[in-house]
Computed example of a mutant assay.
Amino acid sequence: MARIAVVTGGSRGIGAAISKALKAAGYSVAANYAGNDEAAAKFKAETGIPVYKWDVSSFEACSTGLAQVTKDLGPVDVLVNNAGITRDGMLHKMTSDQWYAVINTNLNSLFNMTRPVIEGMRERGFGRIISISSINGQKGQMGQANYSAAKAGDIGFTKALAQENANKGVTVNVICPGYIATEMVMAVPQEVLEKSILPQIPVRRLGQPEEIARCVVFLASDEAGFITGSTLSANGGQYMT
């Protein structure tokens, strides 16, 4: 029987690539999304992957949504915390709404999504929790105090949860992508990409969403059972730890 995987923000960008890669690897995938009904419907039609709409910043919404996934597909074996937003601005001009929107979606969502499934994973003796952080959670980024704080928090969450569950067959890891060729990055003017961004990346190109997806598929596999509490940097050499 196929293992059940849930991917937050799973119908667009890196999340869509992850959802499709997990399905290709034999998982039964549920793709969560926040608000773009048109994009989610198109994704479902193209991939056959069921989509579920809820706000990952709400614990109640996550509990209800995950209960529905469990009813439809079965208990969750693999959780990919991918959903994220940006509300950039220098801190001295940042509003509290900008701060809390990013913290709630990019960090608190890890608790909201993980808490409803972790007990079941422990009881069944298997689980894979994989969170998508960012290079900016490792090195910081001007104008992104909120985003960098949240993504750094994702790494700390991973390390603590990995220790708590290592003896229960549940691994917890985090991936930190660099610049990936998503809609958001590709919207940057070509001149800015070529003069300001690509020179920072030793491999001299953007990453592809599918490259992050392959990292997820490996960490979700049985073969990755000895890897837990790890931070996997996928950034073309831009930041080395």
Rank of each mutant, 00 (worst) to 15 (best):
C215A: 15
C176Q: 08
S233I: 05
A145K: 11
G153W: 01
N108K: 10
A2S: 07
M184Y: 13
S109G: 14
S233E: 12
S28F: 11
G65K: 08
E123H: 15
K151S: 07
L79K: 06
S196T: 11
M142P: 13
S58A: 03
R214H: 11
G178D: 02
I129A: 02
G229M: 09
A24E: 14
P50K: 03
V172F: 00
E191P: 09
T228H: 03
R12S: 14
G15W: 09
E119P: 02
V117F: 01
E191C: 09
I197V: 05
E46P: 07
A30I: 12
A41Y: 11
A40Y: 06
L22R: 04
F126V: 08
G137Q: 09
Y27L: 07
N82D: 08
P50F: 03
A166W: 07
Q190H: 06
F111P: 07
N136I: 12
M240P: 14
F218C: 12
V170G: 00
A213N: 06
I118D: 03
P116F: 00
A31K: 02
G127A: 13
K168E: 10
D97V: 15
K93G: 12
V117M: 12
T228G: 04
R128V: 15
G137R: 07
I175Q: 01
D37R: 14
I18W: 03
N82H: 05
L206D: 10
K195Q: 12
S230Y: 08
K93M: 15
S11L: 00
L193S: 04
I49D: 00
L232P: 07
M184C: 10
N136G: 00
K159D: 03
G237M: 12
S148V: 13
K42V: 05
I129P: 02
S133F: 04
V203S: 11
R205M: 11
Q68M: 14
W99V: 13
G89W: 10
K20C: 14
R122S: 14
K168T: 12
G74I: 09
K42I: 04
F111C: 13
I129R: 06
V188M: 06
S58R: 02
I103N: 06
D37K: 14
Q138L: 11
R87W: 05
V217R: 08
H92W: 15
Q141C: 14
V216A: 13
Y33L: 06
C176A: 13
R214C: 10
G125F: 05
V192Q: 02
D37Q: 15
N32V: 05
Y100K: 14
I155S: 03
G125R: 01
A166L: 10
E38C: 10
V29E: 06
N167H: 04
A61N: 08
A25D: 05
